[in-house]
Design a protein around this nucleic acid. Structure first.
Length: 426
RNA sequence: GCGAUCGUAGCUCAGUUGGUUAGAGCGCCGGUUUGUGGUACCGGAGGUCGGGGGUUCGAGACCCCUCGAUCGCCCCA
């Protein structure tokens, strides 16, 4: 038989296992716990949608839509796309399921997203996010509550050295006026900007503001500020958000040049970013944002729904997992060692008893019988039950934990399979 | 899409200016020792050196292509 080649995993996908998988699970479990504290309701959406769901809401000119989507035709010839983010799909679900009746709704979800990008540290083609959205709430209190939750998730994950960067993009009119002023400002010095920013000038002028290129930064300093274009209403909204955050004890800094990549953002925009020089910044490489979001009051309309205010955020699980440190896999409470294969069935009785009582238990019954105890011992369980070691039905329990020895001894004595020995200790 | 570095056993890596049958540690399997034990010793399995092509008497080493990884740019979580 010809040797079959093992297919490789798809570029930019990951197989997560062991300590890394524990960190990943820790992030998700923490999110689930905190989300219930804030009374966000769990939602599940499909991982793929009609392409137009994303194209229309995210913005045709954004990088995500113009070059990063995994799109394909199904057998009926319809263009479908693997979700590159949660918000658009949630908005669609909100409209097509009549969730409007629950408005305002607080929703939480998590799962895989797909973006066709060059993989690097903290960035994958299939990646995972936790996500929280409040749909149908126009009040700044919604922004405050959403951010308080984000802040608590990060704190409960034990992540340090990360700060909330906050900005406002104003309402639609403010944003447009500001954008026009920025274009004018940068166009006057176009030839002195970096090549990339010259392109951004046409496509996405707001992004010039956070360019890393020195040539751009001199002109960023005296660029028009959003604050000068804010309507009274937009300013009032932002003030309400910031004072709410202060009252809620959420630390934040103003980031005047923080803009978000997607077209649908209005008013509040924010990112949680590691502080310069912190361990977190180090661990993340060039990927800085671990959680980002904002208010998207226009999105639902772009999908054909009624004008509906909403705010949300998403955070990369992989990026968070890199910051929570190693979460080792816990050792077994008990390992049952079969030192003589004649005692195999007793081992299953013992395992059933132990697991039924809530103790994690593992069987060690393969390989050289004489080495099994050593292997069990090496695995570092809280206790070891040895079967057949003395050629008898006795099942000695080895542990430094006296209470556990007694508990295991009591459990085993429930079966006539075992003539309990006088629990010798080591 | 662009750039840099890198691909040798399951894992971490050696492998001299290209030169015989490609090595070590850990892990795994078996045996001996110990005999209430996490020890030590012996032995074994496992590699078409990422894949393909080329240069050469001879390539794991050099060249080209390709796939992948890592790290940046762009952008984002």
């Amino acid at each position: 038989m010809a040797k079959t080649k093992t297919p490789q995993a798809i570029r930019g996908t990951q197989d997560i296992f062991g300590a890394e998988a524990e960190s990943f699970a820790f992030v998700v479990e923490t999110f689930e716990r905190v989300r219930k504290l804030y009374r966000f309701r769990r939602a599940e959406m499909p991982v793929f949608e009609k392409t137009e769901v994303f194209a229309r809401s995210i913005g045709e000119t954004t990088d995500i839509v113009s070059k990063e989507m995994y799109s394909f035709e199904d057998r009926g010839g319809e263009s479908l796309t693997l979700r590159p983010e949660f918000t658009a799909g949630i908005a669609r679900a909100y409209l097509t399921n009549g969730w409007q009746q629950h408005a305002p709704v607080k929703l939480a979800t998590h799962g895989p997203l797909f973006r066709y990008e060059r993989p690097q540290k903290g960035r994958y083609r299939q990646f995972h996010q936790i996500d929280a959205e409040i749909i149908g709430a126009a009040e700044p209190q919604a922004d405050v509550e959403l951010l308080a939750m984000a802040d608590q998730v990060i704190r409960e994950l034990g992540i340090e050295g990360v700060t909330l960067h906050l900005n406002t993009l104003g309402d639609g009119d403010s944003r447009e006026a500001w954008r026009a002023a920025l274009v004018e400002h940068f166009r006057s010095v176009k030839d002195e900007l970096s090549e990339e920013s010259q392109e951004r000038l046409e496509k996405n002028p707001l992004r010039i503001l956070d360019s890393k290129d020195r040539r751009d930064q001199r002109f960023v300093a005296d660029a028009p500020k959003i604050d000068d274009f804010l309507t009274d209403e937009a300013r009032g909204f932002f003030d309400a958000v910031t004072s709410g955050l202060d009252a809620a004890g959420v630390k934040w800094v103003r980031a005047e040049s923080l803009v978000r990549g997607l077209d649908y953002y209005r008013h509040t925009a924010f990112e949680f970013i590691p502080d310069d020089g912190s361990a977190a910044a180090d661990a993340l490489g060039s990927q800085s944002t671990i959680l980002g979001g904002g208010r998207y009051d226009g999105l639902i309309e772009s999908l054909g729904g009624p004008a509906t205010p909403a705010v949300g955020w998403a955070a990369g699980i992989e990026r968070l997992a890199m910051l929570v440190g190693e979460k080792g896999e816990p050792n077994a409470d008990v390992i049952v060692v079969v030192e003589d294969d004649d005692f195999m069935s007793q081992a299953f009785v013992a395992l059933g008893l132990l697991r039924g009582d809530g103790l994690s238990a593992e069987l060690m019954a393969a390989g050289s019988p004489r080495k099994r105890f050593d292997k069990a011992s090496k695995a570092g369980p809280r206790a070891i039950v040895s079967l057949g070691g003395q050629g008898s039905l006795a099942a000695p329990v080895r542990s430094d934990d006296e209470a556990l020895v007694n508990r295991v001894g009591d459990l085993l004595s429930r079966s006539t399979q075992f003539i309990q020995s006088s629990s010798p200790r080591t």
